[in-house]
Design a protein around this nucleic acid. Sequence first.
DNA 1: GGGTGTAATTCTGTATACAGGATTTTACTA
DNA 2: TAGTAAAATCCTGTATACAGAATTACACCC
Lengths: 250, 250
Amino acid sequence: MSKKSTRVDVACQALRQAIIEQALPPGTKLPEDELGAQFRMSRTLVRAALAQLQSEGLVDAPPRRTATTAKPTLEEAREVFEVRRTLEREVVRLVIARWRPEFGAELEGHVRKEEAARKAGEARVSIRLAGEFHIKLGELAGNSLFRRYLGEVVSRCSLILALYGRPHSADCAVNEHREIVAALRSRNAEAAIELMDHHLGAVEHRALLDQDRDAQFDLGAVLSRYTETAETGNGSKIARLPRRKTRAAK
Amino acid sequence: MSKKSTRVDVACQALRQAIIEQALPPGTKLPEDELGAQFRMSRTLVRAALAQLQSEGLVDAPPRRTATTAKPTLEEAREVFEVRRTLEREVVRLVIARWRPEFGAELEGHVRKEEAARKAGEARVSIRLAGEFHIKLGELAGNSLFRRYLGEVVSRCSLILALYGRPHSADCAVNEHREIVAALRSRNAEAAIELMDHHLGAVEHRALLDQDRDAQFDLGAVLSRYTETAETGNGSKIARLPRRKTRAAK
DNA sequence: GGGTGTAATTCTGTATACAGGATTTTACTA
DNA sequence: TAGTAAAATCCTGTATACAGAATTACACCC
C-alpha cells in the first residue's frame, strides 16, 4: 500500500494533510514556485496537484492569481455540512446492512487511538484521527464512491473548523464516536443515524465565531514536516528555486 | 453566462458532452496530441482537462498509457447508482422544502422539451435532456455541492447506460419525469421520493446485457461537432499535429 | 500624510523540448 | 505458420522557456 502514488499524488497528499491538520490556515498563499522547490518538482506537477485540491474544495485557485488554501464562506460551509449529513446517514445504513463482527473491533480500536491522542494532548493527531473515524466508516460501507465523496466533505469540514471553529474544538467528540460504534454494533440503524445526526450537528455547531489568527509563518517549515521525501534527495534536476530566492526568510 | 471558462474548461466541457451523449463510446482512446490538435491547445492543457474528467469518473487515465473514455465495471456502476439514489432522494426533500411556484413552470417547461425531442426522434438530444432534468432539480435544491455531486453521478450514469444499456433506452423516462414534477408540485415529499426511487430503479434496470458496438470511427469528426471554436482560428500558434500526422484518416 | 500613476517584480498561462515507457511493426527462426 | 526478438514509432512524464497579468514598490504630487 505504498508504491502506487504518482509524484503529483505525493504533493497532493502532503498539502491535503497540511490543510486538514490546520497547519496551513485558510487563505495561506501557495505559490507554484515555492511549492515546487519544496517538493522538488516543476510547476507543471505542482499545478496539477493544486488543480486536484481545488476540485476537492481545499484550495482556491482563481485564474491568474496565486492559489491559496480555501476560505469557504459560511454559506458554503452550511452546504458542506448538509451534504455530509446526507452521506453519513446513508453510510450508517450501509454499514449496518453489511455488518460483520470485525467491524466492531476495528472501529473500537480506532476510538481507543483517538482517546489516547486526546489524553496526550496531541491536537494535530486528534484532529486527524477524528476525521479518519468517519473515513473508516465510509470504507466499511463498501462503496468507493461514497468513500470518495465522504472523504472530500470530511476534509472540507476540517478546513471549515479551522476557519470558523473555536481553536482546538474539533476533537472533543471521542465519546460521541464511541456511542455511534455501540449503536452500530447492536445494529440499530435508527439509533445510529440519530446519534450520527446529533454528532454532526454538534460538529457543525462548533463552527461559530470567526477569528483572525493570521500570523505570518514559514511555509517551507510547515511543509517540510509533510514532505516525506527522504531528506534532500540532491542531485535532483530541480534546483532550489532557480527562478528567484525564497521569500520565507524575510 | 459564457465568458467565465478557461481554455481547459472548454476542452473539458466538449469532451464531457461528447462522452455523455455517447458519441465517444466507453474505451475510446484519447491521445493527448490528437485532442490538442482538435482543440488547438498544447498537451499541457489537454492533460489538465483529462485529469479533471478522470476525477469525475468519465475518463480512465492509468499512468503512462493513453487515456480512454471510462469503462466502468458493473460493480462501479452499482456504486454510482447507489450514491445517485441517495443524493436524489435528498434533493427531492430539499426542493420541496424550498418550493416556489416558478419551480413548477420551469420543470414542466423542461419536460415538454424532453417530450418534443423524443417525438422528433432526436436520440442525442433526448439523452442530454433526460440528464438535465435531474441537474435542474439539483439546482433547485440550492446547494452547489449537491449540485456538483449530482452532476457527476448523472454524467456517469449516461456513460454506464452507453456501456451496459440497450441502445436508445436511456430516454424512455419522460412520463416518469412528469409524474415526479406533479408530486413535487403538490409538495408531497413521500410520493416524490417514492417516484424518484422507482424512476432511478427503472433507469438502473435498463443497465443490463452488454454488447460490443465498438465499430471504428473518426475521433476528429465527432469532436469537431463538440468544439465550439469559431472555425479554424488559424494563425494560431499551434500547428495541426506538429508531432505526427493524424491517424484518423486511416 | 495620503493618494496615485508608473516602474519593477512576482507569478501564472501555455507551448515545447527531450527522455523514457508502451505499443506496434518488422524480421527472423523453428 | 506461428512465435518471438529487435527495431521503429507512438505517446506520456516532466522540466523549462517566454509572454503577459497581477501585485508591489516607489516616487511624485497635492
